[in-house]
Design a protein around this nucleic acid. Structure first.
Length: 288
DNA sequence: CTTATGACCTGCAAGC
DNA sequence: TGCTTGCAGGTCATAA
């Protein structure tokens, strides 16, 4: 999506901004009128990304920050195209070319104007200065990420999903990386060896690269690029969403477990639960 | 400081 | 058919 934005909106001057749903700019505290007024007349310079956040540089240390949440889309549409049902923000350009539309069914995503600040040698919108580099970042420090992960006193899947340790990993890629590493998500992060934690992050990186090569992971029409096309990575999933499907390694049925009000998918044989196995080995007794 | 929990939304599929 | 329930890819404020 960043690439698509860069290609379609860079060097174009904003002429008009329409906020059709206030919740879409809730993170922009000065409100919709301020958001629209300040954007007007500014050039979109380049599209940037860190983790799941996307932003467009507007020059002068200002950026339009975006997060797609769970259902957000950025679409480039010829003006006159009928409004999408969940169109939240429309940005028109002075060249009268295609407009940029933020469409978001569930409104978990949103846009905001933000100051660009310097943080650890990177230029970032201030509201996301706490977000860690993602594995695609040229300056990503694998050893530092491994240290951060292993310093966590929580289950490893929680740690993987913590965007302040490593960014870009969500529920799908976490489950896939854990499957590849043969780890159950409830293993304590601090209990992983350095080698295992490194392997886990390498698998996460591989998964993301493979997904990107295929245009992203899409289950339905909600997940599309700026041209409205969806990716095909969902056809390559080994764990996520594969409940009752055979594990690609051992054939055992993949199981689904509740996790933080959502789901985790894993192979019960390849990815044994830590406590259960320890308890049964150490303390299980059979009557004589 | 770290870690865990619920809230924020809409739409869809499954079950009754 | 129509209602209810559960679930969905994420983040953040708040509480412990």
């Amino acid at each position: 999506m960043r690439r698509g934005l860069d290609r379609h909106v860079s060097d174009r001057v904003i002429s008009d901004v329409e906020v059709l749903h206030p919740r879409a700019i809730r993170r922009h505290l000065p409100g919709a009128a301020d958001f629209s007024t300040r954007l007007k007349g500014l050039p979109m310079v380049a599209a940037q990304r860190r983790g799941k956040y996307l932003w467009v540089e507007l020059g002068e240390d200002l950026a339009m920050l975006a997060h797609l949440g769970m259902s957000g889309q950025m679409l480039v549409q010829p003006s006159g195209t009928p409004d999408e049902k969940h169109l939240r923000v429309r940005i028109r350009f002075a060249d009268d070319g295609p407009e940029l539309r933020f469409v978001d069914q569930r409104t978990f995503g949103g846009l905001a104007l933000a100051e660009v600040v310097e943080k650890d040698g990177a230029r970032l919108p201030e509201p996301i200065a706490h977000i860690a580099r993602d594995p695609m970042d040229p300056d990503f420090d694998l050893d530092a990420a491994v240290r951060a992960l292993r310093a966590r006193k929580s289950e490893v899947k929680r740690a993987l999903l913590d965007q302040t340790l490593v960014s870009g990993i969500g529920n799908i890629y976490a489950d896939e990386a854990l499957w590849r590493t043969r780890l159950h998500g409830t293993r304590p992060a601090s209990g992983l060896t350095k080698a295992l934690a490194t392997e886990l992050l390498k698998h996460a990186t591989d998964v993301m690269h493979e997904a990107l090569d295929q245009g992203g992971t899409s289950f339905d029409a909600l997940y599309v690029n700026v041209n409205g096309q969806s990716g095909y990575f969902d056809r390559s999933l080994n764990a996520y969403g594969q409940e009752n499907e055979p594990c690609g390694r051992c054939g055992t049925s993949i199981v689904r477990e509740a996790f933080m009000n959502r789901s985790s998918f894993s192979c019960p044989v390849c990815q044994p639960k830590p406590r259960a196995s320890r308890v049964s080995r150490g303390t299980a007794r059979r009557p004589a």
